[in-house]
């Protein structure tokens, strides 16, 4: 526990009608660290992210940002705090260029008209700060970029706003080997710059390659949150699939409660 967490969630509950998706979830994200959020399909990863980013309202629970209790009721609240989300489906407009995409919805203006020069400069600085050298021109249309480059632009867009916490939803899901390495390197660089990063991933190799901490969700409950160097590959897989692994994970009474409810394979 190096410092106070940048973002701390306590006791988050979330239901959609009769279905309780999140139950008493706690999560901490530390500045300068990559926290990997893992879990099976339907474990509640995306729901948790949407709660953090203000898209869903939580039923119960507390948010602490830099130690202070905060309310996040809308995506605007989240971005005001410095929380940015890079969505899985790459929220980029193909018909716009890199600069236009990075400033989408928050364009710089001088008077009534767009201030293209400043935007281009800021975009260039941000990309250079992330040591991104793969894009030829900032005025290239996003449709002409490769998957990895698009992901890079999406991440740079999130970083542009002096954000403190960047949440990445499966950033490498659709990428090839080389591009995955590129993006993971970029993720690591974000943390090295002092940002808190939450990385959602299904890929254990990615998780172990970049994360400092692993938080495993199991059927809407936080099974464990541990440092990456204190856990093995196999233990994480156990946490994801069974909610517990040896000493780690959900306590027996809770564990069995869920184990009783689910027949093998039903939790997919």
């Amino acid at each position: 526990m190096s410092a106070t967490p940048l973002l701390e969630l306590r006791g988050i509950d979330k239901s959609f009608g009769p279905v309780q998706v999140l139950r008493d979830v706690a999560l901490s994200a530390y500045p300068g660290e990559v926290t990997a959020l893992v879990g099976d399909n339907g474990a509640g990863k995306s729901t948790l992210v949407k709660c953090i980013s203000g898209i869903y309202a939580t039923d119960a629970g507390e948010f602490f940002f830099e130690g202070q209790p905060v309310q996040i009721n809308s995506p605007r609240d989240a971005s005001a705090l410095g929380i940015e989300v890079v969505y899985q489906d790459l929220a980029l407009c193909d018909n716009l260029d890199i600069v236009q995409n990075m400033f989408l919805g928050r364009e710089k203006r001088s008077g009534l008209v767009l201030d293209e020069a400043t935007m281009e400069q800021l975009a260039g600085q941000t990309l250079a700060g992330l040591s991104v050298r793969t894009v030829k021109s900032l005025r290239q249309h996003v449709s002409s970029l490769s998957g990895g480059q698009r992901q890079t632009v999406a991440i740079a867009k999130a970083v542009l706003w002096n954000s403190k916490l960047v949440i990445l939803d499966e950033p490498t899901a659709a990428l090839g080997v080389a591009q995955t390495a590129q993006v993971l390197e970029l993720v690591r660089r974000l943390a090295d710059r002092g940002l808190a990063v939450i990385l959602i991933s299904h890929n254990m190799n990615d998780v172990f390659a970049v994360s400092d901490r692993i938080a495993a969700l199991y059927l809407g409950r936080m099974a464990a949150q541990v440092k990456t160097n204190e856990i093995t590959h196999a233990q994480v897989v156990e946490l994801i699939t069974a909610g517990r692994s040896g000493q780690l994970g959900l306590r027996d009474e809770n564990g069995t409660e869920y184990a009783d409810l689910t027949t093998p394979g039903a939790d997919a």
């Binding site: 605007r76 489906d89 018909n95 919805g105 364009e107 767009l114």
Partner: peptide
């Protein structure tokens, strides 16, 4: 023409036409 090409209104109209989902997630 000025509205479409040189203001954020126009830029956002292009964004919505290009990818309304991305535009929504960008807070438009």
């Amino acid at each position: 023409h000025v509205m479409l090409k040189y203001t954020d209104l126009g830029r956002n109209i292009y964004a919505i036409g290009g990818n309304d989902n991305a535009a929504r997630l960008s807070g438009i």
